[in-house]
Each structure stands twice: as structure tokens, then as C-alpha cells.
Amino acid sequence: MALTTSILKTAWTRVAAQMDACKDELNALDGAVGDGDLGITMSRGAREVVEQLDALPDDLGMAFMKTAQAFTKTSGSTFGTLIATGLMAAAKATKGRTEAPWSEMPALLTGALDAMKARGKAELGDKTVLDALAAARDAIQGKDDPAGQLAAAAAAVDATLAAFRDKPNKVGRARIFAEKTVGLDDPGMVAFRRVVDGLTK
């Protein structure tokens, strides 16, 4: 088995449901250090993608591209743009193919991570979603079954949340309130953790 457009559709349907379920949790986390709209960004973005699912082409790259465009349609939120940036990197990496083997997931995540770092002008260690993505990427190295990958990613993101909890945010709007962020989970990392939850169901 490998990642195909058909699997991508199932994945987004699950993620959208999960984002609806955790919308208030993410809004509240974000409200402590930002403008409190992360839950709305994620749920609206995912729902917009779901609207487009029937139109997704078999070309995996084009499918990723459509999801990137759909995700940014509803809001100008920086987090939404970061997600779309990651999806666009995956689009470029898989363009012209109808499937990508599961063993390619670490490479796709690395590509997404690099593009998101460049776009967000953030580094690993800044206490952002990038740290969670990097941990997940490292944890799934050498695994080629989706269930095993998701379990490893979930554990790695949990460990990352714990490791960063007592550190300050170093980038983005949360940086202005850096000291206030000590002791708080980064909302973006939690959002990614909930995406993994959604995919696991």
C-alpha cells in the first residue's frame, strides 16, 4: 500500500471531523498568546478542503496542490499559510505520480518542514509546530506502515510538547508575550497532535 489520492481523501475527511471537535480547545490555547482563532482557522480550512475532495485528481501532486489552495481560501491566518506551504512542498515532490510509498513519508515531511521554516522564518527550537513536525519525522524513519508511523508520531509529538512546555516561544506573535508562554503548550504543536489523532481514528 502507498499514499494515493483516495487515501488522501479519507485522511482529510477524518482530519476535518477532528478539527471540528477540537476547535474550542485550539481557540482557547491560542487566545492566551495570540488572537484566538487557531481552531477556526483549522476547522474552516479543513472543511474547505473537504468541499474540494470530489474534484481531487489522481495525480497526487495535483491533489496536494488543490488541498493547499483550498486550505488558504478561508482565512489569511499565518498558521493556515504555513500548513498550505507544507502541502505545496508535498505537491511538488509528488507531482506526476499517482502514489507515494509510505517509506517516503519522512522525506515528504522533511520537504514540508524545510519549506515551512523558510516561509515562517523560524528555526527548530523556537517552540512552534515545526518542532513537533521534526520530532514526528524522526520517529517514523524506517517505518513503512501507516499505523506504526502514526503511533510513533503521536508519541514523539507528546514528548515534544512536554519538552517545550516550560520554554518560551521565540517566534511569531507569541514572541511578544514570550515569558507568558512559559508553562503553556504551543497551540500549533497541539493542533498537529490533534491532526495525528484524527488520522489515527
Binding site: Q69, T72, G76, S77, T78, T81, L82, A84, T85, M88, R119, G120, K121, G172, R173
Partner: peptide, 14 residues
Amino acid sequence: YGGDCMNFDMAGEM
């Protein structure tokens, strides 16, 4: 501004 830069850059890429 951070958000504008990211969104304008991404639009340029598209």
C-alpha cells in the same frame, strides 16, 4: 508584517 509576508510570498509562488 509576518502574516502579510507569508501570504504574499505564497501567492507569488502560486
